[in-house]
């Protein structure tokens, strides 16, 4: 483990780990060449934390996000979710984990286009075996939480980008997950709606106690993050607390370009 991580570990010794990665390596074969997207990532994330994974395009944040979310398998190394080694899980257990432990929010929303907002939100509950009526009640409740109580029966195409992303947030929360993974949730949104989503995520983080892991290069996200993980060339460059970051915003903007 890196020194920064050890330091953080000391600070939050009483907190539980919700996600831990160990020597995470992911290689892609592109045009006959092996490309290392992740080069041994060590990352510990605590329960109830709002963590932002920052880094320029191609730095490997989306890959890391996919590994942590169990959407792809690492070449080597391990991911622990609630201290369970993901590599040891079979397909059914992995599906169970994706269904109940992790909620996903994507840059391109990824709502099922043929389903209404409510149906999109209830789908993970149906997969989890929740009875239909119960799922609908909870779905309505969740959509109210994200401020779409009056748009229950609208299809994604009938909603604005911000509204779609809010449906996605509600969907991510459907099965009371321990973790919400948000891959550039504001990437496809304008400033104002992006801000709304960020506020919503923060609110969910505070009120529902969900751990939020967000891959982003939206600097507004930094403001509300508990910690920021900087990734560069597939490695953790540094991990900073929010207090440190605010001082360095200007510098980072420069770095990001």
């Amino acid at each position: 483990m890196g020194t920064e991580v050890s330091a953080n570990e000391a600070k939050t010794a009483k907190k539980e780990y919700v996600v831990r990665t160990k020597d995470l390596v992911k290689e892609f074969v592109m045009g006959g060449q092996v490309l290392q997207a992740l080069k041994g990532i060590q990352l510990d994330i605590y329960r109830g934390e709002y963590i932002s994974i920052m880094g320029p395009s191609g730095s490997g944040k989306s890959t890391l996000f996919n590994m942590v979310g169990g959407l792809d398998k690492p070449t080597s190394g391990t991911v622990f979710i609630n201290d369970v080694d993901m590599a040891q899980l079979d397909a059914q257990e992995l599906a169970y984990l994706r269904c109940r432990t992790i909620g996903y929010i994507f840059q391109s929303f990824n709502l099922i286009p043929v389903m209404t907002a409510l149906e999109n939100v209830t789908l993970p509950m149906i997969f989890a075996g929740v009875p239909n009526d119960e799922a609908i009640d909870r779905g309505i409740e969740l959509l109210k939480i994200v401020g779409l109580g009056d748009r229950l029966h609208h299809k994604p195409t009938e909603l604005s980008g911000g509204q779609q992303q809010r449906v996605a947030c509600a969907r991510a929360l459907a099965n009371n997950p321990a973790i919400i993974l948000a891959d550039e949730p504001t990437g496809n949104l304008d400033l104002k709606t992006g801000k709304e989503i960020i506020d919503l995520l923060k609110r969910l983080n505070k009120e529902q106690g969900v751990t939020i892991i967000s891959a982003t290069h939206d600097l507004k996200m930094l403001d509300i993050s508990d910690r920021i993980v900087w990734i560069r060339d597939g490695q953790v460059e540094r991990i900073e607390d929010r207090a440190d970051v605010q001082l360095e915003v200007g510098v980072m903007e420069h770095e990001n370009d």
Partner: peptide, 11 residues
């Protein structure tokens, strides 16, 4: 926060 694999059910 279970610490064993058994915490994960089967879908």
């Amino acid at each position: 926060s279970a610490s064993t694999k058994s915490a994960v059910g089967r879908q």
